[in-house]
Write a protein that binds this DNA or RNA. Structure first.
Lengths: 232, 232
DNA sequence: GTAGACCCAAAGGTATGACTTATTCAAGCC
DNA sequence: GGCTTGAATAAGTCATACCTTTGGGTCTAC
C-alpha cells in the first residue's frame, strides 16, 4: 500500500509538509537541496517529486525549481493527500469536506446495496449490526470503532459500485480520526446504533428507500456533530 | 496538468495498456525490458513505474518484477485512471460507475449551492442556463456540450465543497465521452434543458430542495439513458 | 529610452555504469 | 519432511556526466 523505500521516506516528509501549509503555495524547492537535506541521491528525489507531481501538489520547471502548487490544484481524492491533510493543519476543513461527501455518497450506496447486495453481504451486515449493538452497550469504543468502519465499508462494497467501494478507506479514516480526536461521545449514542440496525435490516429486506433514509440520518447527524464540535 | 517528458510518454503507453486489460492483473513486467522496448533509460522507467505504483496499478517487487495489480486495487478516483478507462475497454463500466457517482454527488452539490453560492456564482449559472437553451434550440451540439460542462462545473464549484468541485473534470469527461460516442440524441431534449433552467433558478432563489430535486432528475435521467444505450 | 535579438547560466531531464539489498528458489543438510 | 543455507536475480540506490529548456541580463538597433 505505502510507497516503498527511500522515495517513500522522502514523500512522508514532503507530503505532510506541503499538506499542512508548512511549505505554502509558491514555495520553490530545489532538487539539489532536497538531496543534501535528506542525504539521498538524485534518483530518489526525482521519484518522490514525480509522485507529488502526479498528485498535482508540485510543478517542476526548468531554470526555476520545484514549485508548490496551490491547494486548489491538489488531487483531493488521493488517499495520501487525504491522510496527510487529516494528520496536520487543515484537518477540520478536510473532515468537513469528507462529511459532505459522506452525506452524498453513503445514502446512495445504501440504496444500491438494498437492491444489489448478495446474500453474503446481507449476512455480514446483519452480523455487524449485532456487533455494533453489543460493543456500544459495553462502551467498548475501540471495538465499536472497528465494527463501525467494517459496517460502512460493507455497505459501500455491497452497493456494487467500485467507486463507492473505494471510499471505504476514506470513510474509515474519518471515523478513526473522529474517535482519536475525541469528537465522539464516550458511549455511542443509542439512536445512532439503532439507525445502523435499521440500515442493515432495510438492506436485508431489500428496501432501498428505507435504507437510504436511515443512512442519510446517520451521516447528516455525524456531519452536524462535527460542525458543532469543530471550532475552526 | 499532464506528466511531462519521457516518463509521461511511457505512462501514456503503460497506463492505457493496463487499464484496458491488455496487460491483465498478474502480468509481470521487467524494468530492463521496458527500457529496451521504449528505448529509454532506467531513470525514466523507474519514474513512470513509481507513478503507476502510487496509483496502485503495479507493484514492483525485488527478484520478481513489476506486477500488474488487480483492477480492484487501482485508485479509481485518479483522473488519469478514469481517463484511461474511458478511452479503451471498460469504458461502459466506467461510465456506469461515474453515472452512479453523479447521481449521488450532483444533487447534493446543487442543494449546497442553493445555500452557499455567491452572487457571481448565481449570475454565472443563470447565464449558462440561457446559453444552454439557445444552443439546444440551434441543435449546436458542440457549443451545447461546452456549456453543459461549464454548467455542471459551476454547480459543483458553487457548492463550496472542494471535493465536489474537483469532480468537475470527471463529470466533464463523462459528458464529453457521451457526446463523442454518440450516446446523445442529435438534439438535446427539451425537458433536459428545462431541468437545467430549473436548477439554475432554484439555486438563484436559494431553494435547496428544488435544486436538489431538479438536479437529481437530470442525473438519474442521464444514468437511465446510459443504461439503455450501453450494450455491454 | 524602448524594443528586440542574443547569449549565458541555472535548474531540471536523461543516460549509464557500478554497486547494494532484498527475495525467491533450490540444493543440501539434519 | 522440514529446516538451513547459498546463489541467482531483479529491483533499489548512488555518483557522474551530459543534454535541454528557459529566465533573465546584456547588448544592439532604432
Amino acid at each position: 500500500m505505502e510507497i516503498q523505500g527511500l522515495p517513500g521516506r522522502l514523500l512522508a516528509h514532503l507530503g505532510p509538509a506541503i499538506a499542512s501549509g508548512e511549505l505554502p503555495a509558491g514555495t520553490v524547492l530545489r532538487a539539489e537541496e532536497l538531496e543534501a537535506q535528506h542525504g539521498v541521491s538524485r534518483t530518489v528525489v526525482r521519484e518522490a517529486v514525480r509522485i507529488l507531481e502526479s498528485m498535482r501538489m508540485v510543478e517542476p520547471r526548468r531554470r526555476v525549481g520545484i514549485t508548490v502548487r496551490p491547494r486548489g490544484d491538489w488531487d483531493v481524492f488521493d488517499p495520501l493527500v487525504i491522510r496527510w491533510r487529516l494528520a496536520g493543519a487543515g484537518r477540520s476543513e478536510q473532515l468537513r469536506s469528507l462529511g459532505s461527501l459522506r452525506v452524498a455518497v453513503e445514502p446512495a450506496a445504501a440504496a444500491l446495496a438494498a437492491r444489489h447486495a448478495s446474500d453474503d453481504d446481507r449476512r455480514e451486515l446483519g452480523a455487524l449490526a449485532v456487533e455494533l449493538t453489543v460493543t456500544a452497550r459495553a462502551a467498548d469504543l475501540e471495538s465499536f470503532l472497528a465494527h463501525d468502519i467494517a459496517f460502512h465499508a460493507a455497505v459501500l462494497r455491497a452497493s456494487g459500485n467500485e467507486m463507492f467501494a473505494h471510499l471505504k478507506d476514506t470513510v474509515g479514516a474519518v471515523l478513526t480520526g473522529r474517535t482519536e480526536h475525541h469528537l465522539m461521545p464516550h458511549r455511542p449514542r443509542d439512536y445512532a446504533v439503532q439507525l445502523h440496525r435499521e440500515v442493515a435490516e432495510a438492506i436485508c429486506a431489500g428496501d432501498p428507500e428505507l435504507a437510504e433514509r436511515a443512512m442519510r440520518t446517520i451521516v447528516v447527524g455525524a456531519l452536524e456533530e462535527l460542525d458543532a464540535t469543530l471550532t475552526d
